[in-house]
Amino acid sequence: MSDETREGSLSTDETPGGSSAVAPATADTVIEVDDVNFAYVKGKDVLRDISMQINKGQVTAFIGPSGCGKSTLLRCLNRMNDLIPTAEITKGEIRILGTDIYDPSVDVIELRKHVGMVFQKYNPFPKSIYENVAFGLRIQGIKSKSVLDEAVERSLKLAGLWEEVKDRLDSSGLGLSGGQQQRLCIARTIAVQPKIVLMDEPCSALDPISTTIIEELITQLKDEFTIVIVTHNMQQATRVSDRTAYFYLGELIEMDDTIKIFNNPSRKETEDYVSGRFG
């Protein structure tokens, strides 16, 4: 199927067999996915021939129907899939800031400090708000109260939560509302100042008002971080992202500027999906 409509792709090449005809990485490119195959169980590739580039300071949305591999790819970017014993990249390379992150010399823990992640289900630790935000710094061994105070305040402000919680930093993070908890998780992630923030359907468990707040937050954050967001909600993709990648059955069908993807996609499958005829 993808062979027939190949000419539409601009920034990616998803030719089966992976000739890796990717446009050369520019200075702005922070994530390069180069002809990657990925399998949870040996012999069953769930991602095939994925190649893409993600640029600095942009919000990139991954869309596609359930099971298309968008979350899997996202979790490849900070090697969260390492937790599954048999999962591995069977082909290709993922380079972040120029380094092949699956190289044996890479320290996963260092990688994750630079590539933070916000999950679908907000999950603050059962600690105080302050300790939640300070967690990332504490595990890096930072003990100085002033550094921690400063980082907590900055991160909560960035996450737009400061005004709401500044008087109860010592109360449990679990006492907040759903939207607040998700923003607390975002604050916790950005407190360690990662370069890249991965978001796996961050709003799917939230009500519309909280969703709006988080979406605004995402657009503000892109000045400081490169954001990759997986979403089921196509309106959300149009609202928050600069570029959009459409996945289907483990393959990257098309990746382009969000406006183009939603208004004038190059590929028929993309058009079917974004127009709601399918998916």
């Binding site: 969260m80 823990i109 990688l111 933070g116 999950f119 999950n123 630790f125 967690f135």
Partner: peptide, 23 residues
């Protein structure tokens, strides 16, 4: 999810166990 969150923050396995899971 708590474990995953902690690991995604760059905590090592032991840090995750003793700072998040056990508490």
């Amino acid at each position: 999810a708590l474990t995953e969150n902690s690991l995604a923050m760059g905590a090592s396995k032991l840090q995750t166990v003793f700072r998040v899971v056990v508490p």
